[in-house]
Design a protein around this nucleic acid. Sequence first.
DNA 1: GCCAACGTTGGC
DNA 2: GCCAACGTTGGC
Length: 158
Amino acid sequence: MTRDRRFWLFKSEPSCFSFDDLKACPDSTEHWDGVRNFQARNLLRDEIKPGDGVLFYHSSIAEPAVVGIAEVVRGGYPDWTALDPGAEHFDHRASSDNPIWFMVDVRYVRPLKTPVTLNEMKMHSELSGMVLLKRSRLSVQPVTRQEWEHILRLGGVH
DNA sequence: GCCAACGTTGGC
DNA sequence: GCCAACGTTGGC
């Protein structure tokens, strides 16, 4: 049995990893690793599946915004960067038996014609329920189909 | 660079 | 298991 396509919003600081960086990946796919929040971990491990749509959001900049669309190509699997003592997000509690942290792979799809800024999102009542507006710190968060479609429309993608 | 929000840690 | 202290995120 198949499952309906779901939608997510992934946040990234563009100075760290931008949508253009994803576009520039050799095969246009990227391991979405380094997430160290349990709520986001649970989504990565259990809920986010290949084919799901991802809004790519740039945070911690003058004008935070959704800038593009990506797609999940591999569902949750252990985030090995937690096991690597040399890695930035190493976690000494993690092991191959108990990886604790998970990641997914995403691929570049297309940019929005016009980025949809956080300010703009705040002005649309259809988007007032967005997790982004209520719990802004969650770096991987669910988006409803209605929110997804609305943002794509605002972004000039049909 | 400030600071509010909020998740995590650790002492008790 | 509570909760104060602490660290981090991210908008401004």
